[in-house]
C-alpha cells in the first residue's frame, strides 16, 4: 500500500488541495525547527541572561525573555524538538500496541474479545486528560511519564478502530481463499488481515498527532509532565502565566501560538490524507 501512496496520484491530488498543502508546510516547518534547533536558536534555551529579565520582544531577544532571563525564541525552537519527539513516540506506541491488541481481539473473538473491549470501555469512560493526569501523577514528572500517559490514553481508540475494520475485512472472500490454500491462523492475521485493515488506522494516527501534542503540553502545563526549567511549550505557558498580571504577554503567547500552529498543521494534513486514502470520502 505504501508503494501505491508514494506513486504519483496521491501526491498529485495533495498538490490540488491548498489546505492540505498549508498543513504540510506547517508540519515540515516544525520538523525543520526540531531537527535544526541548535543552528536556528540564537541562545542556549537554558542560559539565564540576568541583566535581561522579563524583557519584551526586541532586536536582541526576538520573542522577549522570561522571568529567569531565558530567551523565549530559543526555548520555543528547542521545545519543538522535545514536543514533536514526545508526540511521535506516543503516537507510535499507541498505534502499534493499540492496533495489535485490537486486531487480536477482533480476530480471536469470543471471551477474549469481550473482556478486552470491556477493558477499553473502562479506559474510555474517563475523560482522556483526567486519565492521563492520573497516570502521570502515579509515575511522577518527566519526559518518559508524558510519553507513557499520552500513549496509554490513546490505545483504546486505535484498538477499537483496528478491531472494527478487521471485523469487516474478515468477512471478505480473500480471507476464506487464504484459508482454503492452507494458511495457518497467524499468517491470515498478519499477512492478510492487518495489512488490509491498516489504512484507516494510519490516517487516524496523523489526525492524532495534533492531539498528542495538546495532551503532552497540557500535562506539562499542569506540572505533571516535563519539569519546569526545561524548554517545552506547556511548561513555558505555565511559567509565562505566573507573570500574567504584570502584563508579560510574550512569555505565554509565543509558545501558545506554536502549539496552535502545530496542531492545526497536523489536523489539516490528517484531514487531507483521510480524504485521499478513503475512497468513499473521495468520491463525494
Amino acid at each position: 500500500m505504501l508503494k501505491r501512496v508514494a506513486q504519483s496520484e496521491v501526491l498529485y491530488r495533495i498538490k490540488q488541495n491548498p489546505t492540505t498543502l498549508l498543513g504540510l508546510g506547517i508540519v515540515i516547518f516544525m520538523f525543520g525547527l526540531a531537527v535544526f534547533a541548535p543552528w536556528v536558536a540564537p541562545y542556549d534555551p537554558l542560559e539565564k541572561h540576568f541583566d535581561h529579565v522579563s524583557e519584551p520582544p526586541s532586536r536582541q531577544f526576538w520573542m522577549g525573555t522570561d522571568q529567569f532571563g531565558q530567551d523565549i525564541f530559543s526555548r520555543v525552537v528547542w521545545a519543538a524538538r522535545l514536543d514533536l519527539f514526545i508526540a511521535a513516540t506516543a503516537v507510535a506506541i499507541s498505534l502499534v500496541v493499540g492496533s495489535l491488541l485490537g486486531a487480536l481481539s477482533g480476530y480471536l473473538g469470543g471471551w477474549f474479545d469481550e473482556m478486552f473491549m470491556r477493558l477499553m470501555d473502562i479506559l474510555q469512560a474517563f475523560p482522556s486528560l483526567i486519565l492521563a493526569m492520573g497516570i502521570a501523577f502515579a509515575l511522577g514528572p518527566g519526559v518518559f511519564t508524558v510519553i507513557v500517559a499520552t500513549s496509554a490514553v490513546n490505545i483504546p481508540g486505535y484498538a477499537r478502530l483496528m478491531r472494527s475494520t478487521l471485523l469487516s475485512e474478515k468477512q471478505r472472500t480473500y480471507v476464506l481463499a487464504a484459508r482454503a490454500v492452507g494458511n495457518p491462523p497467524w499468517r491470515i492475521l498478519f499477512r492478510h488481515l492487518i495489512p488490509n485493515a491498516l489504512t484507516p488506522v494510519l490516517v487516524n494516527a496523523t489526525l492524532h498527532f495534533g492531539w498528542a501534542i495538546l495532551e503532552a503540553a497540557g500535562l506539562s502545563f499542569l506540572g505533571l509532565g516535563v519539569a519546569v526549567p526545561n524548554a517545552e511549550w506547556g511548561v513555558m505557558i505555565n511559567m509565562g502565566l505566573q507573570d500574567f498580571w504584570q502584563g508579560h504577554w510574550w512569555a505565554y503567547t509565543f509558545p501558545g501560538v506554536f502549539i496552535a500552529l502545530t496542531v492545526l498543521g497536523f489536523n489539516l494534513v490528517g484531514d487531507g490524507l483521510s480524504d485521499l486514502l478513503d475512497p468513499r470520502r473521495a468520491r463525494q
Binding site: M1, T173, Y174, L176, A180, H192
Partner: peptide, 14 residues
C-alpha cells in the same frame, strides 16, 4: 483445494 465465485474478491488486494 478450492476456488470461489467472484474471483477478483478472492485475491488479497495487496
Amino acid at each position: 483445494a478450492m476456488i470461489f465465485q467472484n474471483p477478483r474478491t478472492a485475491l488479497n488486494p495487496l
